[in-house]
Simulated assay, not measured.
Amino acid sequence: MRSVGNARWWVARSDGIVAGSNFLPVAGGHWLTGLHVAVDQRNKGLGRRLLSTAQATLGGPVWLFCEPPLRGFYLSAGFEDATTLPAELTQRLQRYRASKNLLALVRPTAA
Rank of each mutant, 00 (worst) to 15 (best):
R107Y: 06
G20P: 03
L89W: 00
V4M: 10
L64N: 03
N22S: 10
A27S: 14
D81V: 14
N22I: 08
T53H: 13
T90E: 15
S99F: 12
V62L: 02
I17R: 11
T84P: 06
S3K: 10
G29H: 00
G47T: 02
E88R: 12
S76P: 05
G45N: 09
N6Y: 11
L50C: 06
A12W: 02
Q55N: 08
T109G: 15
L89K: 04
R42V: 05
V26N: 04
Q55T: 07
H30S: 08
V11S: 11
G29V: 00
L51G: 01
G5D: 11
K100H: 14
V37N: 08
Q91W: 07
M1K: 10
R92V: 15
A56H: 12
L102R: 08
G29K: 00
D40N: 14
S76Y: 07
P68S: 05
N22K: 08
E67I: 06
Y74W: 05
W63T: 04
A87L: 15
Y96N: 12
G59H: 05
L46T: 11
W63D: 02
T84W: 13
V4H: 10
A111R: 14
L35C: 03
R13W: 09
S52V: 10
A77N: 08
H30V: 07
A104G: 03
G29D: 01
G16S: 06
A38F: 03
K44F: 07
L75V: 15
Q55I: 01
A19S: 06
T90M: 10
G59T: 06
A77L: 04
W31G: 06
D81A: 14
N43T: 11
P69R: 00
D40E: 15
L35Q: 01
Q41M: 15
A111C: 10
A7I: 07
S76E: 11
F73E: 08
R48Q: 12
C66A: 07
K100E: 14
L105P: 02
E67W: 02
L64Y: 01
N6C: 12
G72N: 13
L85G: 09
E80P: 05
T109E: 15
L85E: 04
F79G: 01
V26Q: 04
G45I: 09
R107I: 04
L89G: 07
A87V: 10
W9M: 12
W63H: 07
V37D: 06
R107N: 13
R92S: 13
V26T: 14
K100N: 12
G45A: 06
W9Y: 13
G5V: 11
L50S: 02
L70P: 01
F79L: 03
T109R: 15
A12R: 12
Y74P: 04
G78L: 03
P68I: 00
I17S: 08
T53C: 10
R107V: 04
D40R: 13
N22W: 08
N43P: 12
V39W: 07
L93Y: 02
A82H: 01
G20V: 09
F23N: 06
M1I: 10
D81P: 13
V106W: 00
W10T: 09
M1R: 11
A38Y: 02
